[in-house]
């Protein structure tokens, strides 16, 4: 279960590119490893190897826990390893105009907050953080409020269930098992009325 997320004040860094897919976040060849090895070493591995001055490697970005990116961040593969790489690499919050659905869902389950904001606001943040990497921002999840490097604030939306799970660090499975009676009734209905749904080996 993930560490609960409440208020985060941390250095932020800009990754001004669209469609950053999960193959960029962590190349597939590293996914053989158990989580215990620490996935932070794989974060953006090939991008970092391939270009000088990758934003996360700027000295001012050291210790950054907030990443601001362009549209459709985390698209592509469902690999939860992408979230492990970000979390193990110290990132607790990603802010972008939009996210890959599976990525966002994986993120929430691992204490990584994804915040979607309008394109114009992201553009301003990207410009600001590109000029001054490592500027401090504050994310207040219970209040759903973001404070940018200039001290200006804005509210953000989040699915109430996702918020509760993150703030309280809830275990999904335990929560589901509270519905044992409804689950049993559902199973009975399938078995008696829709037997074709059960696989028929042989």
């Amino acid at each position: 279960m993930a560490t609960p997320f409440t208020v985060l004040t941390a250095a932020a860094v800009a990754l001004d590119r669209a469609n950053v897919d999960t193959d960029q976040i962590i190349p597939a060849r590293f996914l053989k490893q158990p989580r215990g090895v620490g996935y932070g070493q794989f974060l953006f591995h090939d991008l970092r190897a391939g270009e000088d001055g990758f934003p996360l490697d700027a000295p001012a970005a050291a210790g950054a826990a907030i990443l601001v990116a362009a549209r459709n961040f985390g698209c592509g593969s469902s690999r939860e390893g992408a979230v492990y790489a970000l979390v193990d690499g110290g990132i607790r919050c990603v802010i972008a105009p939009s996210f890959g659905d599976i990525f966002a869902s994986n993120a929430a389950k691992n204490g990584l907050l994804t915040i979607a904001l309008e394109e114009a606001r992201i553009a301003a943040l990207l410009a600001r953080l590109t000029a001054m990497p490592g500027s401090t921002m504050t994310v207040d999840l219970p209040a759903q409020r973001l404070t940018d490097p200039d001290g200006a604030t804005c509210d953000f939306a989040i699915d109430p269930f996702r918020k509760r799970c993150m703030v309280e660090g809830l275990d999904d499975v335990a929560l589901t098992l509270e519905y044992a009676a409804a689950i049993a009734a559902y199973d009975r209905r399938i078995a008696t009325e829709e037997g074709w749904r059960i696989p028929q080996p042989g």
């Binding site: 469902s78 690999r79 939860e80 979230v83 599976i102 869902s105 994986n106 389950k109 691992n110 699915d159 269930f161 999904d172 499975v173 929560l175 589901t176 098992l177 519905y179 689950i183």
Partner: peptide
């Protein structure tokens, strides 16, 4: 039919259910 992450895989293994909006 849709793709899920590892935490959801563990959830489906344990419950044969999934929370979705």
């Amino acid at each position: 039919a849709f793709g899920i992450g590892a935490t959801e895989v563990a959830h489906v293994l344990a419950t044969q259910m999934l929370w979705q909006r």
